[in-house]
Amino acid sequence: MRRNFPVWAVYGLGFVPAVAAFGAGLSGLSGPDPIRALEQSLGLWALRFLLAALCVTPLRRFAGVNLLRYRRALGLLSFYYAALHFLAFIGLDHNFDWAEIGREIVKKPYAFIGMACLLLLIPLAATSSNGMIKRLGAKNWTRLHRLVYPAALLAVAHFIFAVKSWPLEPLLYAGAAVSLLALRLAPKKSRSLEQAGNA
């Protein structure tokens, strides 16, 4: 069943929240502040897809579930949502007022953390193709793509800095991100043992 689920369907389903959020905003179904609703929804989905991509390795290692073929789609979806989130921020939220946007990004932690996170995701998205993996070589490619770890931490920090006080939701996402990264620190058993365990 899992093997038969096509990758393109992940992209197809992955864009449903974006279409739904934009549609809800246009039709007035997303409440009195549709811009904020759309902006927040896009950002939240960027974070969810990022965490989903980070689940692939621990699932393979600790649960024996191999979703590796969907990881690129999850990572790219995260990037697309982050880019849309940024577009909503500069276009809808700030009406392309570059002076104010620039000031906000330079002076406000939530904005420059978010910006830094998006900048980290760009080289990852740009090198996501099979061709690029070949060109970089597996070792370099793997090294470069470790940028996803700081990106995940920046993403949850961005969320925390964008809200008042310490509400639960961003803390839960932060906990999930830290846990997913911490799982990678677990000592590796020898390859043969791990494979035996997974068999």
Binding site: I35, D93, D97, E100, E104, K108, P109, Y110, K164
Partner: peptide, 8 residues
């Protein structure tokens, strides 16, 4: 955390 120059 954020600018107060404008509002929606």
């Amino acid at each position: 955390r954020w600018s107060q120059a404008t509002e929606r």
